[in-house]
Design a binder for these strands. Structure first.
Lengths: 219, 219
DNA sequence: CGGAATCCTCTTCGATACTG
DNA sequence: CAGTATCGAAGAGGATTCCG
């Protein structure tokens, strides 16, 4: 079965990478794991109904290729989880560029589609501009519908996570459909008029937020 | 049949982009067109035996979505060609990151695979570091096997093309399999020992070349 | 009960033949 | 040359079964 895999057989890194990553679901599995280790069941739910056989196949392949590791959480949890290796996590820039392309070219997210807070974390990471963050510090909390996540800018690094954060400089509160419009590139001033988008923080902090996370016009 | 398309239905730019680009061959078609307009037949050959029905389907879809335009070359040529629109060309960073990921993580290109000079152009564009090119000028010619292409660095911009160039500062001459090893991240010093890799140019120009085009260690 | 293999149906792919 | 049509093969989706 070793040679039974379809491949492009081209001496090109694009084709070679796509041989591994180009199958359906694969990059979305990477997206989920970028936020942190996940259990098999969590992945099934997050991906919205991938067949368990496919997920099993994909994880096996990614593990073979060294992008994903299967690990057992230490006791007392002792449950198996999947997590990205360094090589797997190195794919993040690929996902960033997909997001940035979508925003830049104005491709609207479907309004009838499902959404997960972790995807918003990925989106914010994609839109972050480290080259503008030189020496700036900023602590952000996002409250989208029932979901809360945060981002911390330190120097030119960005750390993100689910849940609240201590002493935020900026708190973004938005309804999910409004946050989707933010991801579609609409300016905060416009969103504010809906009454379902609110930015709390000092003027200075709010300006930094706008500067550090690009939307359409500035990509 | 309008809704007969399989999609992820997720409010996430990664998933949304992949709905369009994630099918087999699609991103490789974009890769080909990044180098310039191509005829249908050229694409079939460059892609190494894609079914003409699939190529037809993909081009149709890409045209619908505004990433590709079908155009007729002005007389006397008067032949139809496909070319990227601005939105299509905006995908280039996605391909860059795929190449950089492959190099960075040391994924070797298959040695028995086909290769095309245009892929080498894409590779060099991917490895170019504009942030290190500040104010530098450099004219490069690459001779790989029978194929010749060039790159011109001006300011922090890079322009590439097939064929020779006037007054090159650096000429890289390599056998195809050695150039593949360069793409795999091997250092020029090592490649030089094979006798099938040669760099011509002033010491200053050669240093610039190494600085402006990253290989594994410095990505 | 979570994790993964199996089975069956449907869609997509790939190769070639065919038409304007 | 530029595609369209056709058809067997491979892959995807979904439900169910097996296993620890």
């Amino acid at each position: 079965m070793t040679s039974g895999r379809r491949g492009y057989q081209q001496a090109c890194h694009v084709a070679s990478a796509l041989d591994l990553l180009g199958e359906r679901w694969t990059l979305l599995i990477v997206r989920e794991l970028l936020i942190g280790p996940r259990r098999f069941r969590d992945l099934v739910e997050a991906l919205g109904g991938i067949g368990t056989n496919l997920l099993s196949d994909r994880l096996k392949r990614l593990a073979e290729e060294g992008l994903v590791a299967r690990r057992k959480l230490p006791p007392p949890a002792s449950v198996p989880v999947y997590e990205l290796t360094e090589a797997g996590a190195a794919l993040e820039p690929v996902l960033w560029e997909l997001v940035r392309w979508g925003v830049k070219t104005g491709r609207d997210l479907p309004s009838d589609a499902s959404y997960r807070p972790t995807w918003l974390v990925v989106a914010m990471r994609s839109l972050f501009r480290p080259e503008r963050a030189e020496g700036l510090d900023l602590r952000l909390e996002f409250r989208v519908g029932e979901d809360v996540f945060h981002a911390v800018v330190e120097g030119s690094a960005l750390v993100t996570g689910l849940g609240t954060i201590e002493r935020p400089d900026v708190v973004v509160t938005a309804a999910p459909e409004i946050f989707r419009r933010y991801e579609n590139g609409e300016r905060p001033e416009v969103l504010a008029k809906t009454g379902k988008w609110k930015l709390d923080g000092s003027k200075r902090a709010l300006m930094r937020f706008e500067k550090l996370f690009a939307v359409k016009a500035s990509l």
